[in-house]
Structures are given as C-alpha cells and as structure tokens.
Amino acid sequence: MQLKVKRLTDTAVLPVKAHPTDAGLDICADEDITINAGETVTVSTGLSIAIPEGYYGRLKGRSGLTAKTLLRVQEGTIDASYRGEIKVICELRALTARKEPGRWTVIMRSGGYSIKKGKRIAQLIIQPLPTVDVVEVDEMDDTDRGDGGFGSTGV
C-alpha cells in the first residue's frame, strides 16, 4: 500500500516508522507551541495525506511520551476522503495522583509543556475499514453479558 503525503510547508516532516515492523508512523509537530496545564490545543503537522479507499487513519499518542509526561494525545480519526492538514489534538493534564503509603495524593500542576517543531508527538496507524450496513431490528439476541457495561465485570 502507498500512502500519498503532501508537505504543506517546507519544514514539515514526512511520517516514518522507527522500525520496519512498527504499527504506527511517527507524526511530528510543524510548529513551536506551549500547552498550559488543563489546556487542549491542535498542533499543526504541515502534512496532508491521501488514505486509500477502504481504510482510515488513527492518530494516537506515542507510548513513551504518554508514560513519561503529562501530555496526552486525543485519538483522532482521519477519513479516506479528507485532504486537509493533519492536526493532532493534544492536552496537558492538570491533575495527577500519586499513591503514598495508605493514601492517594492529588497533585495540581501548573506551567506548561513545550513542543518544538520537528518533535515526534503522535503516531498514525492505517487500518482497514469494513463496509457496515445498518439494519433496524425489533429485538436483540441474548448473550451472557446482556446489557452489563461500565465496570460490570470489575474495574
């Protein structure tokens, strides 16, 4: 499969896999931006992509960045027909909790997190998209789970 990519700026970095067997292509910021605690922003990538018909793109956070910082990438969906600039939705967590012996401590963060142009901030995963026909029915079949949800099997 080919993924056609257009640079919208001279500084945009093409998506690339760090290792040939990686699921995601690294996506880089194309702007310098500081995100303040509790703030949600969209970060420019300077890229437009053409996802083949029958597929869609998922933008996800990079695991190392998520594990080691309070920056969170909100998952995004890129439809095959979209040709605008890819932007990454990022937020900086304002609260975190730390377990101390016998209790949890909530820590309020202030300040910001700086993203520099060229920094890898997300990953793009291309996935197949099945054709789905919606069929209205009068009754649903029974299952072991039934209507149990939202922690019905434990937290």
Rank of each mutant, 00 (worst) to 15 (best):
V73C: 09
T45V: 05
E53G: 06
T66S: 14
K68V: 02
L59I: 15
V41P: 00
G76V: 04
G64P: 09
E75L: 13
E53S: 14
S81F: 14
T40W: 00
D79N: 09
T66D: 12
R58C: 09
E85W: 03
I51D: 10
G61L: 07
V88Y: 07
L59G: 08
S44G: 03
V41S: 04
T42C: 11
S63D: 08
R58P: 04
G54R: 12
E85H: 10
T42S: 13
G57W: 04
S63I: 00
T45R: 12
L71K: 01
L59M: 15
E53A: 15
I89W: 00
L65E: 07
G76A: 11
L65R: 02
R83T: 13
G46P: 03
S48A: 15
Y55M: 14
I49E: 04
Q74C: 13
S44I: 04
V43R: 05
D79V: 05
S48N: 05
T45W: 09
T40K: 14
T69S: 14
L65Y: 02
Y56A: 12
R72N: 15
L70P: 00
A67C: 03
G46A: 07
S63E: 11
I49S: 09
G84D: 08
K87N: 12
V73S: 06
A80M: 03
T77R: 03
S81P: 01
T77G: 04
G76H: 07
L71F: 05
L70I: 00
L70Q: 13
I51W: 03
G64A: 09
A80K: 01
G46T: 11
R83G: 14
V88A: 11
C90S: 10
Y82N: 13
S44D: 10
I78E: 06
K87E: 12
G64T: 01
R58Y: 08
L47M: 03
G76P: 04
G46C: 01
V41L: 10
G84I: 07
K68L: 07
T45Q: 08
I86A: 01
S48R: 04
E53L: 11
T42W: 08
S63V: 02
L59Y: 04
S63Q: 08
G54W: 14
K87H: 13
L47N: 11
S44A: 15
Y55K: 15
Q74K: 12
C90M: 14
I78H: 11
L47V: 03
G57D: 02
A80H: 12
